[in-house]
Structure formats: C-alpha cells, structure tokens
Design a binder for these strands. Structure first.
Length: 521
RNA sequence: GGCCCCUUCGUCUAGCGGUUAGGACACCGCCCUUUCACGGCGGUAACACGGGUUCAAGUCCCGUAGGGGUCACCA
C-alpha cells in the first residue's frame, strides 16, 4: 500500500513546480490504490493559515488532484496541520534527548556564526565543536545562569556514511562528518521543520517521500532522526526541480522580472493580462504570474493541459507518446522513468499542449468553458438567449483558433457593434483603397437584398457580386473584413458575416464608409 | 568555499555497446488559402571536453570543465 503526501506551507499560492511534485505523488498513490495525503506544513506560520491555504486547495480542486486525507476531508490521522501536532514533535524531541541522539545546547547564533565563517574561509565544512553543549543538568544550570537559553540539537554521527537509496537518483552517499548538529527544538519548546516532518511522515504512515531535489541535502539528518526514533525508513525519490524558462536555475516566483526578458514567458503573461483586462478582472500582481497555477485558471487554461504538460516535464513514457488521459497517466507513470536533470519550463510548449487539448474538447465543452469569460467580458448574458446562441456560433466558427477559453475576448466584435479599429489596417485596406471602398458601398446594397444569410448564402451572394463587378474576391475581402470587424484577421469571412447577421453587417459596412468620410474630410 | 546533484537539437525528450542518433514544441521553406489558424510536405539543428575499457561507446569507468541545489533557532 503506497501512501504519498504533498506538504505545502501556507504561502498563499500554488507554484507550478509544486504541482508537478504533487502530480507525481498523486499518480503514485492512484496507480496503487493507495492514498494521497495533503498536510499543511505551517510550523512557522502566523495566523492566516486558512486564508493562505485556500488558493492552494483551489488549485488542487481545479486540477482534479483530489486528496484522500488532509484539510477539509479529514482522515484517520487528524490533524493534518503540522502546527497542531506539536505535542508529538515535542515528545520526539524528549525521546531523542533521552536516548542521547540530541543534546541541549547554549550557543548563541552569533557565536556559531563566527565558527561558520571561519570554516568557510578556510575551506572546510563547518562542524560545531559542541562547546556550549550541556553535558548534564549541572552544566545546563551553569549556562542558564550566564543568561543563555538552550535549544535542542541533533547529536550527529562524526564518522561513517549515510547511504540514501533514491528511486530517481540511485544511491547517494554522504559522509556523516559533514552534517551539522541541527537545531530541532527552540528554547520556547517549539519544534523545527526537520523533526516535525519526520515525525509527521511516520505518524501519517507515509511510505514514499517524493519531493523536489532541494530536499536531498536535508535527507541525511532526517534519516538520522527517524532511525534514532526507531522508525522504518520511507522510500525516497528526489525529483529534479523545474527550471526557469531558457535557463537552468530553479523556477522561482520571485524572479518574475528576470523571466520577463524571455520573450515566450513575457508573451504568455501579456496574453494573460489582455484577457484579464478584457474580462474586467483585477489581477493580483503577486499571483497573476505564469509561475503560479492561479494564472492559468484565470485565463481559461484547461486543467488537463497543465497536467499533461507537467507530466512530460522530466518524465516520458517512450519519447514519442505526448498525449495522456488522466487514466493513462495513472496507468503508465513510473518513478524509474523520471529524469535526473532539471527540465526548464517552456511557455510555448505549454501553450501548444493547451491548444491541442482545447481543440480536442467537444463543442459543448468549449462553449461551457468560454461562457464565464464571455460573461465577465460583457459579451453575453445568460438571461439574453440571443447572446448565448451567438456564443455557440462563435465558438463553433472559430474552431481551433481558440487556444484557451479566455481567447473568446478576441471576438468582441461579434457581440458588440462598437468596433475597435486596427487603424493601420483600416487605412491600408479601406481609406487607402478607393476601388474597394466603392465596391463596398455597392456590396452593402446588394447584401441587403439577400434572402437567407447563412454562410453559404452569404458566400454565394458575395461571389456573384464579384462576378457582376468583374473583380476577384481578394480585391474586396480585406476591406470587407476590416469594415465589419475592425481587425484584419478572424475566422472565415462568410461565417463571420453570417454570425453577425444581415442587418448588422450592412450597417457596419455603411458605418465604416462614413468613418472614411469623416476621417478624410 | 564545503557537501551533494546534473550534462543528447534552442526547449522537452527517446536511446540502456553496433542507429543514416528517433519524436514533440519552436524556427525556416513549399503547398493549401479571402485574413488568421489548422492541415500536408520538406528542412536547419544535439551526444560538454579529455582519457581509458572494448573489435565497437551517446551508451561502461576515471578525470576535467560547465551548470545547479544546499549549507538558518525557514519550510
């Protein structure tokens, strides 16, 4: 039985790299019929834990990564908040003290820093000489009399090796002598992460610890703690981190300014900003960022696309298969095929996966996905049936031009007659093209007499108009598109006119011609 | 700086001793075409370097270089 966990701190956001770690954990649990547990590592957190975990839980819900035990759902090992398990941590600290695997220490931070700096400048690794270690109650009392306050430190082995069997990296060996006597409990009795984490993982019966590789250097001391406590070792797998776009350093929420120099990343964010602004959504600059999952939800990404992209970031089945349903992910995922080197986050590939995923959705699903965005952008109102019909027609006509649900905002011209013109294109195709303009005037009259106005009828009408005028379609179509939509690209011309409808099409053409007059006079 | 990890096209990767080093994204060209997108066809592009081992090395071993992670009374 496999039990995995993801243990976020209440930071208020869900990092894309964290999602990948969570996904792998989730997959492992699901494929074995085991459990995936969410534990909140709020050891050091202040008051607003609930507020800060909400975006994280929302992210998980949106992605469909359900947890078997944890916040909101509870479970047999409650509580799932580390801060509420402090009694267990303190008991463990006592036990380590009693067994001699830890000691009370009275060094000050400053005193230690001096030793640390010395070690570093002479090229050695720092090993505390235990100068302020209390050897018995008497020496502790003496230190306390000096006004020192004591913490509990691990009494690490000074020789031998720690061998970590890692499912991703193989065997990793570290000399114990390089490990520090880490503090596990503060003077106020509160316990630190490493102790808490080990105790909780044991209490929650976690079998596989799958986490990012930045935790690899922490592993020896965690192993020391758990073995000193008599726990059985979990199975470890340290995943390479997700690297920044175009780089090799760890992807970090804090380096947004740097990533903006990457064109693909900047384009993605600017696409997001455009959609958000069209939807009148005020974005939180702190979390509206392609490094954070919320960003994708806000602009209409498909959760499955995120999952599929992340699955392939550092893992592959055979180097060829790219598309996986969730069931296929569960069926095929193995830690053995996780790569050992960091994989850099590629906004273009993500976008491509998203586009394919969205295009593969049924028309109903795409309409449903775009509805919230169209509503927020003021394009449609659920109480006005005509706008709902229009939405469906637009989604159908746009086909795979819609890469994500938020892209619907680009078709405002279908819903609203207040066109926003691409002036350069208007100048070139309408104002500056007198023959086309004259034709447009006649075309408007001609279209007005059209019987039915579905796309094939419009096409037939425009074609026969062209024949009667002895012009090619392309001599008029550009001007027609800009006159009726304001922009120079979109889905099929005839579909566009059909969706807009006869009355509005004719009115828009005439309006555009008036616009030329007023601009030139 | 110490310790640890990593190294195949620009990016994600396949490869587990013998391959014309494969696929995907991106890019370029051609075709399709009323724009855009899609689609079709084609193309550019990689084994970090140096030693071994071997008949044979991207694949195994050892170095070097480069990159990265981590060194808290944070998690």
């Amino acid at each position: 039985m496999i039990r995995t966990r993801f243990a976020p701190s209440p930071t208020g956001y869900l990092h894309i790299g964290g999602v990948r770690t969570a996904l792998f954990n989730w997959l492992l649990a699901r494929q074995s019929g085991g459990q995936f547990i969410l534990r909140i590592d709020d050891t050091d957190a202040g008051r607003n834990v609930n507020e800060a975990i909400e975006p994280i839980l929302n992210g998980f819900r949106w992605l469909g990564l359900d947890w078997d035990e944890g916040p909101e759902v509870g479970g047999p090992h409650e509580p799932y908040y580390q801060s509420q398990r402090s009694a267990r941590h303190q008991a463990a600290a006592e036990k380590l003290l009693a067994s001699g695997h830890a000691y009370r220490d009275y060094a000050t931070t400053e005193e230690l820093q001096v030793q640390r700096d010395e070690a570093q400048s002479s090229g050695r690794s720092f090993v505390y000489d235990r100068r302020w270690m209390a050897t018995d109650a008497e020496s502790a009392a003496k230190f306390e009399a000096e006004g020192r306050s004591g913490v509990v430190r691990l009494k690490m082995p000074r020789n031998g090796q720690c061998v970590i069997e890692d499912l991703v990296r193989g065997e990793v060996c570290v000399d114990w002598s390089g490990e520090q006597d880490h503090v596990i409990q503060r003077a106020d009795a509160s316990c630190l992460y490493h102790l808490a984490s080990v105790v909780d993982d044991h209490d929650l019966e976690i079998t596989h610890i799958v986490r990012a590789e930045e935790h690899l250097p922490n592993t020896p001391r965690q192993i020391f703690i758990l073995e000193s406590l008599g726990y059985t070792r979990p199975i470890y797998a340290h995943l390479p981190y997700v690297a920044e776009p175009g780089g090799t350093a760890k992807l970090s929420k804090r380096k947004l300014a740097k990533y903006l120099k990457n064109k693909d990343f900047a384009d993605l964010l600017s696409r997001g900003n455009h959609i958000a602004s069209e939807c009148n959504v005020t974005t939180d600059a702190d979390t509206f960022n392609p490094v954070i999952v919320d960003f994708y939800r806000e602009i209409g990404f498909t959760p499955h696309a995120i999952l599929n992209y992340l699955l392939l970031l550092g893992w592959s089945l055979d180097g060829v298969t790219e598309k996986f349903t969730v069931d296929e992910m569960i069926k095929h995922f193995t830690l053995a095929r996780v790569n050992r080197s960091p994989a850099s986050f590629d906004p273009q590939k993500l976008l491509s996966v998203q586009g394919d995923t969205f295009a593969a959705l049924s028309l109903e699903d795409r309409v449903a996905a775009t509805l919230p965005f169209a509503t927020r952008a003021g394009l449609v109102h659920e109480s006005i049936p005509e706008t709902m019909i229009l939405l469906r027609e637009v989604v159908e006509a746009t086909g795979d031009r819609l890469k994500m649900a938020g892209d619907i905002v680009d078709y405002r011209y279908v819903f609203s007659d207040e066109l926003s013109f691409d002036e350069a294109a208007f100048e070139k195709r309408v104002t500056g093209d007198e023959p086309a303009r004259l034709l447009l005037a006649d075309l408007a009259d001609s279209l007005e007499t059209c019987g039915s106005f579905d796309a094939p009828s419009v096409e037939a009408a425009v074609q026969s108009f062209c024949e009667s005028k002895q012009v090619k379609l392309k001599q008029i179509v550009h001007a027609l598109r800009i006159a009726t939509t304001g922009v120079s690209n979109g889905f099929g011309m005839f579909e566009t006119l059909a969706v807009i409808g006869k009355t509005r099409t004719v009115a828009r053409i005439r309006q555009a011609l008036v616009r030329v007059g007023s601009a030139t006079s």
